[in-house]
Every structure is written in structure tokens, then in C-alpha cells.
């Protein structure tokens, strides 16, 4: 763990604050994510976890603070504040949504192909004339999308409408769609919500596999068993503030965390 800290973090958040009118949803938040690391973000409901995700991905503009993303390969650092969501995705950070936001009237394959959008280039003329470059690009999109679907175990339902999938499959499709954008950092917002134990176990294996392929993962999750088994590091939030961070073993015995979850007279 120590020598990981030595590296430059791929995501560096410092002093991040988000105000909605008079409500401070995020309060001077600092944390970072290293390459190929699984970081879990936990905290009671309303702690500001999803708000943090929305700030990171450009859906909200943070009131103050800095977000920097550094590509692990090139080491190039970019400031993410004021960038549009699509630009941020292009930089290499993709997300899933807590309330599933699939394109339900499109097929499973098409959903993943949408993820390839920011890595492909053909536009009007390419679409109309369908030149060789466009055709190759299209074929590559299909091939890569199929590959990803195979990885998440949806290759049998390629032509199904996304809206007709089971809940667990929809969650996995969201991950597949995010993976198609070729991110080095994947943000998962409650990926195991509403899954049965078997599906959760499959998901844990999938997330591990994704990590082993070189992606870093930042995930929000309420399933403590999943969080404790999966994550390298945990960041705990309450009322928009970071109240603790450390390894699962450290968090398990942290007084602040127990207090936040169970109330004042825990001990």
C-alpha cells in the first residue's frame, strides 16, 4: 500500500465543495484514487456520495475545489472542472448510474456501441457514403462491443432490447457500456443494488476481473460485505465530509464510522 501512495494518483480531488442554495452537499472533500486500485465510497444515505459522482463526471459544476485526472499511461494531467460530461468521458473516466439509465428501447449491443461513440469519428459524410474507413470503424465497434458483452456475460442477449433484461443483467450492461468508452477509471454507483446473493457474487468476480485488466474502480455501495471483500481502500463520508479513510480492516473498527452509521451511543 505504501509504495502505491508514492505514485501520482490518477484521480486527485482537493477541497471539493458543492452548494445547492444554502445546502452544502459536499464540504471540502479531499481524496485520491491510484491506478489499478478499487476504492469504495461509503456513507449513510444523503451523505453526498452520488453528488460527488455527479461533480466528478461533470453533470454538476462544483462550487469550489479542484478535480484532476491523470492518465496512468502518459501521465498527462487534466483539470476536470468546467469540462462537459462527454469530454470527461473522453479523458478516460466513465460511470454507471444508481437508477439505471440504459437506452431501454435500443438493443443490448447498441447500448454498448453507444459507449464506443467517443472513440470513433465517422460523421454525416461517412454515414452516407459508407466508405472503407467507416465500414472498418463500424465493424470494429461491433467486434469490441461483442467482446465486452462476452466479458460481462451478456453475449447470449446481444439482440434483446435493453429494457427487457433482468435487473442484474441491466446493471452489468451499464458496466459494459461504461467499459466500452475505454476508461482507466470506472465509477460504479451502487452496482449491486437490488441484486440477489448469486448475482452479487458474480459482480464481485466481474469487478475483480476488470481491475486485473488495468482499470481503477471507484464505487459507491451499501452492501458492506461486498465493500469489505472487494476494496483496497475505503473512503467514508457523512454530511458531505470525509470522516475516515483506510483499509477495510481499519474502517471496520473506526469509531467515527460506527458513530455515523449507528448513532452516538454506539459504545
Amino acid at each position: 500500500m505504501m509504495n502505491k501512495r508514492m505514485n501520482k494518483p490518477i484521480l486527485d480531488v482537493s477541497g471539493l465543495t458543492m452548494n445547492f442554495g444554502g445546502i452544502r452537499a459536499l464540504d471540502h472533500l479531499d481524496f485520491e484514487v491510484q491506478a489499478k486500485e478499487i476504492v469504495a465510497l461509503i456513507g449513510p444515505n444523503g451523505a453526498g456520495k452520488t453528488t460527488l459522482f455527479n461533480c466528478l463526471t461533470g453533470i454538476y459544476q462544483p462550487s469550489s475545489g479542484e478535480i484532476h485526472l491523470a492518465c496512468p499511461q502518459s501521465g498527462k494531467q487534466t483539470r476536470l472542472n468546467d469540462l462537459k460530461p462527454n469530454k470527461i468521458t473522453e479523458k478516460g473516466m466513465a460511470r454507471t448510474f444508481q437508477n439505471i439509465r440504459l437506452f431501454s428501447q435500443m438493443t443490448v449491443l447498441e447500448n454498448v456501441m453507444i459507449g464506443r461513440h467517443c472513440r470513433t469519428h465517422s460523421l454525416i459524410l461517412g454515414a452516407i457514403f459508407r466508405d472503407r474507413k467507416t465500414r472498418e470503424e463500424e465493424q470494429e465497434t461491433v467486434n469490441k462491443s461483442c467482446e465486452i458483452l462476452e466479458k460481462v456475460g451478456l453475449s447470449g442477449q446481444v439482440n434483446e432490447l435493453a429494457g427487457n433484461l433482468s435487473y442484474g443483467a441491466q446493471r452489468r450492461l451499464e458496466i459494459a457500456r461504461a467499459l466500452a468508452t475505454e476508461p482507466f477509471l470506472l465509477l460504479l454507483d451502487e452496482p449491486a443494488a437490488g441484486m440477489n446473493p448469486q448475482e452479487t457474487a458474480d459482480l464481485v468476480a466481474l469487478i475483480r476481473q476488470i481491475r486485473d485488466e488495468g482499470h481503477a474502480i471507484l464505487l459507491i455501495e451499501h452492501d458492506m460485505k461486498l465493500v469489505m471483500t472487494l476494496s483496497d481502500r475505503i473512503v467514508v463520508m457523512d454530511y458531505g465530509k470525509k470522516i475516515a479513510q483506510g483499509t477495510p480492516a481499519e474502517i471496520r473498527i473506526n469509531r467515527e464510522v460506527i458513530k455515523a452509521y449507528l448513532g452516538e451511543d454506539g459504545g
Binding site: 463526471t57 439509465r101 431501454s104 428501447q105 453507444i114 459507449g115 467517443c118
Partner: peptide
């Protein structure tokens, strides 16, 4: 089509 279905998800997937 993605834009028609869900604008936010569409942007989050890198579509301008």
C-alpha cells in the same frame, strides 16, 4: 437514438 432515450446517460457515454 440515445439522445432521444436519455440525454444525461448519452452525455455520460461521451456523446457531444
Amino acid at each position: 437514438l440515445a439522445l432521444r432515450e436519455d440525454e444525461i446517460a448519452c452525455q455520460a457515454m461521451g456523446i457531444d
